[in-house]
Write a protein that binds this DNA or RNA. Structure first.
Lengths: 244, 244
DNA sequence: AACTCTATGTCGGTA
DNA sequence: TACCGACGTAGAGTT
């Protein structure tokens, strides 16, 4: 939705942030900020953005960073005074205030935007694929034997063979791993161990609970942070290159 | 300037960033990013901002941070393909690419914004403390006489004694100084001058109105930019003094 | 809530 | 260009 710049309407539209709307205003404004630091910016053409979560951004014509801002959770008020639009954003802990005064309005947008803030970087399946496609991440020179290999205790996520012939049994989690994950890994390792093979246990997860860490250490298993993989993913991702 | 969403026009308007325009597009888009990391965001309502310096921002309805972005200096291309708007931003060192594909356009803004990126840090009290703790910033070898010194005209923010025995009267503002600030300084200077002492006037402020600048010059006072001044914490010194 | 660590950090400085 | 430090860092995860 786009509308003509009108002080009263602008104020009303800004307050619509409470109903889930994003409001954008382009106009000439001054900005006063006090809080962790303090600043004043004289009247000039700028763009103000108000988001439903209380975020306030003021952008100029350069830089990635806003000239001034207020983080999510701030409380915003907007009203007309002498036919000027005043926008005030307050935040507590730490106490911070921004006062924006528009003496001229140019453009006004009111819209609803997505709120995914979703970053697709790696499901458990992605991690498994990544290990399969490049087992050297786990151990240099290792070869893939297979994934989702059934055993009496359940399916082993990945099994590799190390250069020295020993097996590497890998349990993959895409959430913080607890002792159950380590116990599961332990069962797999013991299963293969009982067949008279030398076996290493590796747990891949974003993080590890304290108990899991202790158990892992006691069993002599290895932990690899899933974060390391998303880094490696950069190198192996070549899916979307387009012409310029 | 606001216009109806039209694929060809949108592409053309985005490219206006090379002529100093900021372009904002609200619509439904997908985003592919590959560079230092990698991500894909499925089609959803978002806001894209392109700045004259090559900055590209994609915002959703929450968070201060953009969902995806490209820093200043990136090269942006925009065109229509199958009636869909494609925006591509490339950057070298490090190599990074963003591909945004709009399958629906909602709003389009083209505007010119200020490029001050002025940041004034420090409260007035901070500035005073800074001067007190290191008066040499104002003049090499100067000594502190006191702060908030009462006079018949009001309290003088800081008074120093220069090496040659003359007084240095300092007026500190943490906002753009107008003639009133200079006039106040003038009164203080005249007050001490009437006591038969040699007096210098110094104004510390983030900026100065044109009239204030002229008056300051006429009176032979010094102006120190508060912005430059805050840098003095680690750098030195007299170079920051500007005389008009 | 406080603390720690990461980030496509960004940005400004200097060598 | 690369390295170094500061930032109103923001934001996520852990204690």
């Amino acid at each position: 939705m786009v509308s003509k710049p009108n002080c009263a309407r602008a104020a009303k539209n800004i307050l619509m942030y409470r109903q889930g709307y994003v409001c954008v205003i382009v106009g000439i404004c001054s900005i006063e900020y006090k809080g962790r630091a303090a600043s004043y910016a004289d009247f000039a053409a700028r763009m103000l953005i108000v988001k439903p979560d209380g975020t306030l951004l003021i952008h100029e014509s350069s830089k990635r960073e806003p000239l001034n801002w207020q983080p999510p959770g701030s409380r915003i008020d907007a009203f007309c005074e002498n036919n000027k639009l005043i926008v005030i954003s307050k935040r507590y802990s730490p106490p911070e205030t921004i006062v924006v005064e528009f003496n001229s309005l140019d453009t006004l947008i009111l819209c609803k935007l997505a709120s995914t803030y979703l970053r697709v970087l790696g499901t458990e399946e992605d991690l498994v694929k990544l290990i399969i496609s490049n087992p050297s991440i786990i151990e240099s020179g290792a070869e893939v034997i297979g994934k989702d290999i059934p055993t009496p205790m359940g399916k082993v996520d990945v099994v590799l063979r190390a250069k020295d012939g020993s097996l590497i049994v890998i349990e993959v989690k895409n959430e913080r791993a607890g002792i159950s994950a380590v116990a599961q890994l332990k069962r797999y390792v013991e299963h293969y161990g009982s067949m008279g093979v030398k076996v290493q246990g590796v747990l891949v997860a974003p993080s590890l609970s304290e108990e899991a860490k202790r158990l892992l250490h006691r069993e002599g298993f290895k932990f690899i942070s899933a974060r390391e993989f998303s880094k490696a993913k950069r190198a192996s991702l070549d899916m979307f290159i387009k012409k310029f």
